[in-house]
Each structure stands twice: as structure tokens, then as C-alpha cells.
């Protein structure tokens, strides 16, 4: 058990309490025409609501252009929400001043997709890991060194002394990603946002890194938001899944529920589209909805998936946006097919 977890247990903290609460979040980016005129908004996140509990891993699954990156960056504090609330540890992000945001940043870790790009190429590992500590106000040099060593040991990069003077280009992809994870963990955050952390790594390394993340999550009782487009990794690493399409969350449920009983037609399509190594695949065509995800500037009226949905209800799906329905407990889906 980690120090922070032990402390939490001692304080009788509710280990399952809600850590992060997103309420009707909208993140719109203004489109400028010729730098002056207003040409509309890119509605990257258009009404997203969910909760994350302590120690819980949530996978946000969706294809490129669905807004998951913007959602994640807004949670990280890099973008300002256009509408809606983000409440972390009972503090509304809107109310935080610069110092408050500083505090928030040290409680959230960010693991990015491209391990090489995420590390400054002109700094060595020690310096890279030292930066968040310095910014976070850890003044004592000894303490910084200790924390750096601990972080590297936790991501299983040993012997630590071998890695401290190395520069990013001297490390393999997997090692680079470990450094990124160590950097995210070094301030002992309460939660981690991982954006496609393994998609740029080799197949055999992916599993290692995912296992490492899971181990860290268990050890520190971390909450993790795991963003991916690869459904096959989800069952190893998450408890709940949110499926995102064109700025909305179309299905929210436990992983087992979604994998065994996918409800939203888009979710069904995603599962069908995901391949497993099976020679019979070569003889069958996959049934997938035609077309492409819509533009976020002018999304289709009503349910945004209706132009591609084979099960669209005429007169309903193209007019009204569906709310969340709950056909089975804990399994929410935004689809008129499940209106009771």
C-alpha cells in the first residue's frame, strides 16, 4: 500500500467517493474567418456529464474527431470550458485562481500518446523528472533526488543511476513512455489522464506498459481516465467505459456490460470493427455503418449518429436528441431505441 493510500485509510476517507465530477460540459472553439469574422464554432465537447470515483479507471473510447482529446485537455485545465462545471475534490475549477490552478495541476498527471514528443529532447531524464517538482515548489534538492529515484523505481526503470543521465533519444519507445509515466506520477497525483498511452508502441511493449499503469493505479489508489480507440485493451485496464461520438457520450456502463451487451448502434459497430487474431476473418466481411463521423462545426440535427444508423427511427432520430436511458442498472445509453 502506498503512503498516500495508507494516509487516506487512516483518515477514514471514503475510498469510493466522487473525485471528479463533470456536469453538462461544453467546449466550443471559435472559428475565425480571415482572422476577423466569426464563422461558427467547433463544438468539440457538447454536453458531457459523468463522475469519476477514487481508485476507478474509466475508458473513454471513440474515433478521431469525436472530441475526446478536447474533453481530456479541458479536464487537465489546458482549455477553458465554454459551459458547464468541472468539480474536482469538491472544488469547482471555475473558482480557482492561479494558485488554485497550480494546486490542481499538481494533482493531475498527464500521460501522452507520443512518448518521444512528450519529452524535451534537450533535457536528460533527471532534469525531466525534476521539472514538475521544481514547479510544484519542492525546494529541497535532496528531497527532489529522492522522489526522482522513487518514481523511476516505481516504473521499473532500474538501475536508476543508469537512466538518470540519459537523453530521450537514447531510450527505447517503451522506456520513454515509462519516463513520461514517472513524470506524471512524481507529484503523487490523485488522478491520471492517459491519452492513448500505448498506441505508438510496439505490440509486445504495449502490454507491459498497460500492466505497469494498472499496477500503479492499484498501488496508489489512483483514478485514471484512459482514452483509447483500441477496445481490445479496455477489459484489462478499466472498470467503466464511456463511448464518445461527435462530442457526446453515447453509452456509459461497466466494461463487462458493454462488451457482453452493447446497446448503442455505434458501440455495436465499434465492437464489430475490432479485430481479433482469427484466420476466419479473411473470409468474412465486417458489417459496419457507412460514412464518416460528422463535422463538429455543423453536426446533424437530432441524434448525431442517425445518418449512418441502420436502426434509425424515422421522424424521431433526425429531429430530437435522445437523453440518457437506463435499460439495465448502471448501463446508460443515449438512444431512442431504448425509450421505455
Amino acid at each position: 500500500m502506498s503512503a498516500s493510500l495508507a494516509k487516506a485509510v487512516e483518515n477514514k476517507e471514503d475510498l469510493r467517493k466522487v473525485l471528479l465530477s463533470i456536469d453538462d460540459l461544453h467546449v466550443w472553439f471559435e472559428l475565425r474567418k480571415f482572422g476577423f469574422g466569426h464563422a461558427g464554432y467547433v463544438k468539440a465537447v457538447d454536453g458531457v456529464t459523468f463522475d469519476v470515483h477514487r481508485g476507478e479507471t474509466i475508458a473513454v473510447v471513440g474515433e478521431s474527431g469525436c472530441g475526446k482529446s478536447s474533453l481530456m485537455k479541458t479536464i487537465l485545465g489546458l482549455y477553458k470550458p465554454t459551459k458547464g462545471e468541472i468539480i474536482f475534490d469538491d472544488k469547482n475549477l471555475k473558482d480557482l485562481d492561479t494558485k488554485g490552478m497550480h494546486w490542481y495541476h499538481s494533482h493531475v498527471g498527464y500521460v501522452q500518446q507520443d512518448p518521444y514528443g512528450a519529452l524535451p529532447s534537450f533535457m536528460n531524464v533527471k532534469r525531466i523528472l525534476e521539472e514538475p517538482l521544481i514547479i510544484g515548489g519542492v525546494k529541497d534538492k535532496e528531497e527532489r533526488n529522492q522522489r526522482i529515484r522513487k518514481a523511476l523505481e516505481e516504473v521499473k526503470m532500474s538501475p536508476v543511476d543508469d537512466f538518470l543521465p540519459k537523453y530521450p533519444h537514447m531510450l527505447s519507445g517503451g522506456q520513454q513512455q515509462r519516463v513520461v509515466i514517472a513524470r506524471a506520477m512524481i507529484m503523487e497525483p490523485k488522478f491520471l489522464v492517459a491519452d492513448e498511452p500505448v498506441s505508438m508502441l510496439d505490440a509486445s511493449v504495449r502490454v507491459e506498459i498497460l500492466k505497469l499503469l494498472r499496477g500503479l493505479q492499484e498501488l496508489h489508489h489512483l483514478s485514471v481516465i484512459y482514452i483509447t480507440h483500441d477496445l481490445s485493451t479496455v477489459s484489462y485496464f478499466s472498470e467503466r467505459i464511456f463511448v464518445m461520438y461527435a462530442g457526446n457520450l453515447v453509452e456509459k456502463a461497466k466494461v463487462r456490460q458493454v462488451l457482453d451487451n452493447p446497446l448503442h448502434p455505434y458501440t455495436v459497430a465499434l465492437l464489430t470493427g475490432t479485430s481479433e487474431p482469427d484466420a476466419k476473418n479473411a473470409d468474412t466481411y465486417k458489417e459496419i455503418p457507412p460514412g464518416e463521423p460528422p463535422s463538429l462545426v455543423k453536426p446533424p440535427p437530432g441524434c448525431r449518429f442517425h445518418p449512418r444508423c441502420s436502426k434509425a427511427i424515422k421522424g424521431l432520430c433526425e429531429i430530437k436528441e435522445p437523453p440518457d436511458f437506463e435499460p439495465e442498472p448502471g448501463h446508460l445509453v443515449a438512444c431512442w431505441l431504448y425509450e421505455k
Binding site: 527505447s172 509486445s204 504495449r206 500492466k211 477489459s235 484489462y236 462488451l259 481479433e276 487474431p277
Partner: peptide, 22 residues
Amino acid sequence: KKLLASVPRLHGDSEPEFITGR
């Protein structure tokens, strides 16, 4: 064998393995 065992499955019953070394 190791490559195939490292592929994560949708309905993951067994843990995928990874290959040590480079």
C-alpha cells in the same frame, strides 16, 4: 507464440503476456 500471446483480447479472460528484452 509470444507475439500471439501478447495480443489483448476483447473478452480478455487470460492476461496478455509481454516479451522481455528488446
